[in-house]
């Protein structure tokens, strides 16, 4: 069974939502990424969303863009990220889903890429710029490998689109909480709880919520209704703040923030 399915099943039994921290692979280097994932697991994170850096992300705000640049400036390659995952798998069984731009998936070839990603120990992809109507084949291939392609729903999604997206998504559904790009925000949108509840009535797939979820308080609020809470920019910003510190110190400080967020979600 895929680690993502297993995790959501386990959490459902406990009646707890998943906490899903996002970091960028190779920010500032792959050893740190590996250490951070292990640290997050220790602190109680349930699933990791690992961003594969891309030169031209259009769904990401300045904080995540900057983390992609930090990784790419050092010449990071997809194959090195997969190698790091392979090494990590000797120490950890935490589910990992990679956020990856379609440009990268297309270039690698979906069949090859999914096969390699699965062999390395990844559990799924979220591909922010691949709408459900563009590529049936990729969902079929993923199924064959028990790999997950996680789809997105936004506040702008029409009811008709919602239907086809909930049918296609695998592992969980990623609900984009705001009309906008990723980033740290002071407040959550007013309609967020209402929208999540509406979505829950349409599907039995676990719903995880991201974009703009920034504080333990936000995480708690979202966790009350959603099956998973995703925090990205707030964590990546913490990495940026600690970028000049030693690796151990960076990992400890960022881990501290993740600990607080876990507490927010799990109470």
């Amino acid at each position: 069974m895929n680690r993502i399915d297993e995790k959501f099943r386990e959490l459902k039994g406990k009646g707890k939502p998943a906490f899903i921290p996002f970091i960028t692979a190779g920010d500032p280097d792959l050893q740190t990424t590996k250490d951070l994932i292990l640290e997050f697991e220790k602190r109680g994170a349930d699933i990791i969303e690992l961003g594969i850096p891309f030169s031209d992300p259009i769904a990401d705000g300045p904080i995540i863009q900057a983390s992609y640049s930090r990784a790419l400036t050092k010449g990071i390659k997809v194959v090195e990220i997969l190698d790091m995952i392979s090494l990590l798998r000797r120490e950890s069984n935490i589910p990992i889903v990679s956020m990856v731009s379609y440009s990268i998936v297309y270039k690698q070839g979906y069949q090859t890429f999914i096969e390699r990603a699965r062999d390395a120990g990844l559990d799924g992809f979220t591909i922010p710029d691949l709408p459900v109507e563009e590529n049936d084949e990729i969902f079929e291939i993923a199924k064959k490998y028990d790999f997950k392609i996680v789809c997105f729903i936004a506040p702008t999604t029409t009811d008709q689109r919602m239907l086809s997206i909930t049918r296609k998504t695998q592992g969980f559904l990623y609900y984009i909480s705001v009309v906008g790009i990723t980033g740290v925000r002071d407040t959550l949108p007013d309609d967020i709880l209402q929208n999540i509840n509406k979505l829950k009535q349409k599907t039995n797939v676990p719903i995880s919520v991201g974009f703009g979820v920034s504080t333990p308080e936000h995480a708690r609020m979202v966790g009350n209704v959603a099956d998973g809470v995703i925090v990205g920019s707030a964590i990546v910003r913490e990495i940026e703040k600690n970028i000049t510190k030693s690796r151990n110190e960076l990992v400890k400080n960022v881990g501290g923030l993740v600990g607080e967020l876990v507490l927010g979600v799990k109470g």
Binding site: P131, E133, I153, T157, T158
Partner: peptide
């Protein structure tokens, strides 16, 4: 060709 954009703007393209 095609449409490779985030879901948020897919409805606007439609």
């Amino acid at each position: 060709g095609g449409k490779f954009v985030p879901e948020t703007i897919m409805p606007a393209l439609e």
